[in-house]
């Protein structure tokens, strides 16, 4: 169900933006646009298949804990 919703979302967004992107014809703009969209699509799809994706939260926690050890106790 969730996968269908995600697919519908991305398909409709691509169709909608195909026309707006056509007007502003920057190549770099298109590359950035599609790469960001594609990354989010992949993350969402993987997430909905219950694939574990490393979360940035853990990285942030790890870095901060190594600097400020006392934060764990607070």
């Amino acid at each position: 169900m969730v996968i269908i919703i995600i697919l519908v979302l991305f398909v409709s967004i691509s169709i909608y933006n195909w026309f707006t992107l056509l007007k502003s014809s920057g190549t770099l703009e298109r590359i950035v646009y599609f790469s960001l969209t594609f990354i989010s699509f992949v993350i969402l799809i993987l997430h909905s298949f219950d694939v574990k994706i490393p979360s940035p939260t853990n990285g942030i926690k790890f870095v901060i804990e190594s600097f400020f050890e006392s934060i764990k106790e607070y």
Binding site: I13, N17, G26, L28, T37, S40, F41, I43, L44, S55
Partner: peptide, 22 residues
């Protein structure tokens, strides 16, 4: 870029994807 508006939707989508794995 000339305009920020085209970047709104990709950033929103990225934030959405990020929010699910946080």
């Amino acid at each position: 870029f000339a305009n920020y508006r085209t970047m709104v939707l990709p950033s929103a989508l990225f934030a959405l994807a990020l929010s699910t794995i946080l």
